[in-house]
Design a protein around this nucleic acid. Sequence first.
DNA 1: TATGGTTAGGCGAACGTTCGCCTAGATTTT
DNA 2: AAAATCTAGGCGAACGTTCGCCTAACCATA
Lengths: 344, 344
Amino acid sequence: MPKNVTLKDVARRAGVSYQTVSKILRNQMHVTPEVYARVQSAVEELGYRPNVIARNLRTQSSHLIGYSWQPARQNFVNPILEQFEQSIVDAAERLGYHILLFPQRDGADLSSTYEDLVHTGRVDGFILSDLGYNDGRIPALQRLNVPLVAFGRTESDHAFSYVDVDGATGIRQAVEHLIQQGHRRIAMLGWPEESRVGADRLEGYWQAMEGAGLDVDPAWIKRGAGEYDYGHDAALELLRLNGRRRPTAIVTVFDLIALGAVGAIQELGYVPGRDVAVTGFDDMPQLRHFHPGLTSLRQPVWEVGQQVVQFLVQLLQGNTPEPPYSLLSPELVIRDSSQGYHPD
Amino acid sequence: MPKNVTLKDVARRAGVSYQTVSKILRNQMHVTPEVYARVQSAVEELGYRPNVIARNLRTQSSHLIGYSWQPARQNFVNPILEQFEQSIVDAAERLGYHILLFPQRDGADLSSTYEDLVHTGRVDGFILSDLGYNDGRIPALQRLNVPLVAFGRTESDHAFSYVDVDGATGIRQAVEHLIQQGHRRIAMLGWPEESRVGADRLEGYWQAMEGAGLDVDPAWIKRGAGEYDYGHDAALELLRLNGRRRPTAIVTVFDLIALGAVGAIQELGYVPGRDVAVTGFDDMPQLRHFHPGLTSLRQPVWEVGQQVVQFLVQLLQGNTPEPPYSLLSPELVIRDSSQGYHPD
DNA sequence: TATGGTTAGGCGAACGTTCGCCTAGATTTT
DNA sequence: AAAATCTAGGCGAACGTTCGCCTAACCATA
């Protein structure tokens, strides 16, 4: 293996001291054009690359960002993990950082693992995603005084920097779209009371309904945990309401819940979209193979990743971004499940 | 922020030289029990953690492994990325390494990006997955003399260390299972000629059919590219064969192809499993919500990750694993799509 | 001419380890 | 009793940077 080229090698060939080379390469020093050219060509000819480990030792930073996510449960695929990872890697590289993988293991002692990573100088800061209810990672990291930025918010009152998708705006878009399609009786399948994401999205439903001056029958609002089965069962109940209480459209907080609702609609002999409209949330890529196409809200995952990294790098450089958080709007993707409404 | 505790701090408190502390902590030196205890308690009391950057500078290694994967196409989710990442992180941490994320971007100049990562001392070696046809990453890294281990093989004759799933064995299991269910006319939806994974899997089909002494009608073997649509159209052709040429079971090389076949079967008014059996490959987690349950071959992703890391760490330590590759068998997961056959 | 400011570049030190050789005393061997 | 061996631990050097201060030469000003 060819011995690594160092600053000293470059300096010797260019006829200056190696510290001078260092400064020239980092634009920290004015030199005569002639010396500048000598150094540049020495760099080229020798193929010099700064050794990042030495640089990091000197500057006391690793230029590494830890990415910690909560692994998906069994039988479930995180639809956006890959794109999010690509986005943060992309943004980080542009700013001179790299991403270190660090899945959160169940049962691992939070403080001690993070403490290890930070105190050994492995990483400079953390990106967290998939925050759980009162996620323990936040206080653990804050106690260690480690810069962090999260994708998502949490219920607790710990103040931290985050980027999140505005669920209220998303659901509002969906409901407004349904109203425009002619729907008036619109139901909502939400998440349990204690979920702040759920509360957020429900808020959007109210905004849209009130904004359009539509009455809301309390029976139209369901809250529950689960995926396909919850959506299926809740939709069955809704569709069995009599006469003018029966909703003609169902807004849901998650694609798989919407899928359950579509299943229920079909079981009862209705046609999704034409008879009862359904919308989901997340626009899971793997659902695009299925019929009918599901109207859904696509999260701007790439954009979230970019902003998360920008926030974190600012924190690492000692600046506090102002404001320290960002809310992005999801994009409504309209497909068959919410189109072609024909009131009978 | 509390100044980091260094070897010197520990040494001062324990009353020995800092180099001695270093050696004691790495079990490189015999000392009297008394000194040993003094050092240990000094470490405890001060909360000393070795600074990995300094260590890496001295030992000229980063203890970082780059993981490069080929991002999934639009509208598609890599079903095993997350689990694979978890596995390699787990294995790496146990061996004192961490994983640096490094998605392969289309159009990026291969050599120069990798060269950068290696020459700057960022990473010690690479794990590659999702090898493409004659994947350019392999020669690029080999030219730079960088240790690498791949998840998967490739067509080329570059010799490198890999861990792969034995597709032939997998398909053989599937075909044998179908034979046991009473099927005799079994078709195979494969991949195009030039795919080595496809050739491998087709081989397993032949093995099983010949092993059972069954004749194979050439019309039963299809090769094509694509997912749902390919499976759907090919299955339609198969099911339109007359009389005793019509297969009663269809083996496929990919879950989504199998899904297309199931769709075709249902369109023609048959019941999957009872009338025509179908098997997939990959056991994609996201398909577990759908009916009928798809019989498929599950890749031992966790085990692959563990072995890949073990191979790479051996290479990094200068040992060549013997043999330098490993083939693991997938596990047949039997569900409704291949059960309940009733010949009419 | 002396004074002061600017400019180009040199140089010592430090970041926190690990490595290899050295030494003083204790113990064993001849 | 002298020589050889062992043992516990010390110590200088190096890994490849960056940082801050220093200096010599040049130029302009009073």
